[in-house]
């Protein structure tokens, strides 16, 4: 018999997502309101976790772990030489990959707009009027220039 193990939003996704409500300047990190969550074992892939560490906002991850009460032995800061620190990577893996939010909300830190999470799937759709202008406003395009106003 097949047991359905539904997938849920991981904290890895949360760490990367930003709010995009029109007019919001700093839509990161989204706050999490949890009504239901789960810990589910996932294969440990140290190489993947190592590759993701530099892309993470560690402070946001740590705070998310605090708000979900899953800090455990997660290091408050990224350690030196993390690639070779299995304990560090395992804890990062647990928090990033194994903690899943099933039901709750993602909340834009600036506008307070709530994005519902149902069945582990956040609904990031905007209402009319919340959609920003098409634009280069995304901070990180790391384009050098003033080329698109």
């Amino acid at each position: 018999m097949r047991v359905t193990a539904l997938r849920r939003m991981k904290l890895l996704t949360h760490n990367m997502l930003t709010s995009h409500v029109k007019g919001v300047k700093n839509g990161y990190p989204l706050k999490i309101e949890v009504n239901e969550m789960k810990i589910r074992e996932v294969d440990f892939n140290p190489e993947f976790i190592s590759r993701m560490i530099p892309r993470l906002e560690w402070k946001a991850l740590y705070e998310a772990a605090q708000s979900l009460d899953v800090v455990g032995n997660l290091s408050p800061e990224v350690v030196k030489d993390y690639e070779n620190d299995e304990d560090f990577l395992k804890e990062a893996h647990r928090v990033l990959m194994e903690v899943e939010v099933i039901k709750g909300f993602l909340i834009c830190p600036e506008s307070g707009r709530k994005f519902p999470i149902e069945n582990g799937i956040p609904n990031m759709l905007l209402n009319e009027g919340e959609v920003g202008d098409a634009g280069p406003s995304q901070s990180g395009t790391s384009q050098d220039d003033d080329s698109m106003q």
Binding site: R7, T13, L17, P122, M124, V131, Q138
Partner: peptide, 25 residues
């Protein structure tokens, strides 16, 4: 996708509204 038990995380979004993740994700 959920029913098929895919590995990835999923979210509802309209690509025409833009894609919002941190730079270099």
């Amino acid at each position: 996708a959920e029913e098929r038990e895919v590995e990835g995380d999923l979210f509802v979004g309209d690509m025409g509204e833009g894609v919002f993740f941190r730079p270099g994700t």
